[in-house]
Design a protein around this nucleic acid. Structure first.
Lengths: 209, 209
DNA sequence: CGCCTTGAAGCAACAAAATCGCATTAAGGT
DNA sequence: ACCTTAATGCGATTTTGTTGCTTCAAGGCG
């Protein structure tokens, strides 16, 4: 993890960390990420540059820490009454947030200053948690559910891949298509014998309760 | 793009570029990427640091250029006689190369110094080209083939996502599993209603003269 | 073939950053 | 309250990044 193991979590260390993070957020808003420098952040945070260099190593790692915090979901996915509706809504929102300019910037920053992959792993864990919440609800309703891994591979991965590597088509319809395919695959794997055919294309999110 | 538009491709500019790239490759091998500095590269390449700063901006963009070159596939995928075999083999090799420490480093470097996504797009295009070659062969054999996009979403994206965001399981079996699922999906989409599972439906090129 | 234009490279002075040793402070435990 | 020790502050030093100006060479033209 980038904030080096904090042996003394409480007190001053915590204050400095928060102060520095806040300074980064403020300055990114004010002067833009490209104009940021370590000395600038240090001055705003009221610490000396060497403190930042020692704790974070360089600006990229600091930005990675701040970015991954911003990627933390703030609320649980909405409960719309069915797995399909919940996943559609979640995937749409996920794609929307991640593909927006600030979203892309956070993703990039997270990956950029993250030598050991800790922050990237955290970012992936956030998505998995959200999916797990949706799946747990579906299980409670008695719906058959796919594996979290399947949804990561089929929904999250394609979205992130396109954001990072391929310019172009990234809209709500694409998100729904991915969800459709993922659920379709799961139905097949769950029971190939039931005579259900292709995806029953219900339009938008409308709970069928 | 990082090497700024070269108005004078031939002659000195080209020599300098090649010399600098070579210096980067040598030094990465000798002292490691983390120890690299622009002045060091400049000295080795026999140019002044300001030349590098002016042409590439900073070390990251230079590394991105070098990295994307290394990600260019050197040979066409092997022809093993069937779409399934070709894709299995290609996916295994792709996963293998990309998930190796140097592979991961190249991917990271590519994304790192790539403000406009040009190099990342190139990287994605390489994979698409390789897949297209495999698909074209399958079409020639009369096999039904999935869309390139489907394979990108189902095979390439999950691999890259896991490499970048999720530590853990990345082996040949996983690659094959992804291919299996992708082909499975394609068969369903191809003929869900007619009883013929894998009827040789000729698609794109290949005039029937 | 030699001159002219022009973009790129060299050079050097300068500004900004990162690094490092050492002194000082404050958590947390006893 | 005291002691230990990680973390911060401070300042000197090194390294890196920037800039204006000069010099060089590729390509076009008479």
């Amino acid at each position: 993890m980038s904030p080096r193991p904090m042996a003394r979590p409480g007190g001053r260390s915590a204050r400095v960390q928060e102060s520095v993070h806040a300074a980064v957020r403020e300055l990114v808003a004010e002067v833009g990420r490209d104009a940021l420098t370590v000395p600038m952040v240090a001055t705003r945070a009221g610490v000396t540059p060497s403190t930042i260099y020692r704790r974070w190593g360089d600006l990229r790692e600091l930005l990675s820490d701040v970015a991954v915090e911003r990627l933390r979901p703030e609320t649980d996915p909405a409960d719309l009454g069915s797995l399909r509706a919940d996943l559609d809504a979640w995937a749409e929102q996920f794609l929307d947030e991640m593909s927006s300019p600030p979203g892309r910037a956070y993703i990039r920053d997270t990956l950029l200053g993250d030598p050991d992959g800790t922050n990237a792993g955290q970012c992936s864990a956030y998505a998995a948690e959200q999916i797990d919440i949706v799946l747990a609800r579906a299980v409670r309703r008695g719906e058959p559910v796919p594996e979290t891994e399947l949804l990561i591979d089929r929904v999250v991965a394609p979205i992130m891949y396109r954001i990072l590597f391929r310019p172009g088509r990234l809209d709500a319809a694409y998100a729904r298509e991915l969800v459709t395919n993922a659920l379709h695959a799961q139905q097949i794997e769950a029971g190939a014998r039931p005579a259900q055919a292709a995806a029953p294309r219900r339009s938008k999110k409308e709970p069928d309760n």
